[in-house]
Amino acid sequence: MSGTETEVRVAGALPPVSVGVTAVAVVVVAVLVAPSPVPLGVALTGGVGVAIGLFRFESRSITAGAGLLFVAVVLSGGRSTGWYLAATVPVVLAWVNARYALRLGRQIGRAGATLRVELVHTILTLAVLVVGGGAGYVASRSVAGGGSPLSLALLFVAVVLFTVALRRA
């Protein structure tokens, strides 16, 4: 019956908005690191990794690609703390969105309308990253004037402890 009367699309197709946001985020990272050839090459490689992960439904490729994007940000170094934070936001956004696109693609595909949840997910993630990055930036501004190495060590310990505490199995 089905397949002959009407072509029914089932799960397995990527949702368009999440893929689009991921693509834009990768391009933003590439543009940010573009002046230096090596970071640009690493970023483009990372972008290819993310694309391969998306189209082959492999989350490990996406994670590896996002890792390369972050390495590209680090390699373009010598920048201010604010720049690092701003450049990392699209990296994390691309990674989170690409993983979400995979899950949505596996479970729903293009058969169902996914625009609403995709937009909600993207906006929420972006808001969390902006707020988190802003907090980091404020912390960096306050630390910048300090001369004690112990202060940085204690802040580092705080980050590790918070991470361990907030991790959820």
Partner: peptide, 14 residues
């Protein structure tokens, strides 16, 4: 230190 502080993005997600 700038790279260290990018960890705050992850902490926010967590």
């Amino acid at each position: 230190p700038g790279v260290v502080l990018t960890a705050t993005l992850g902490v926010a997600l967590l």
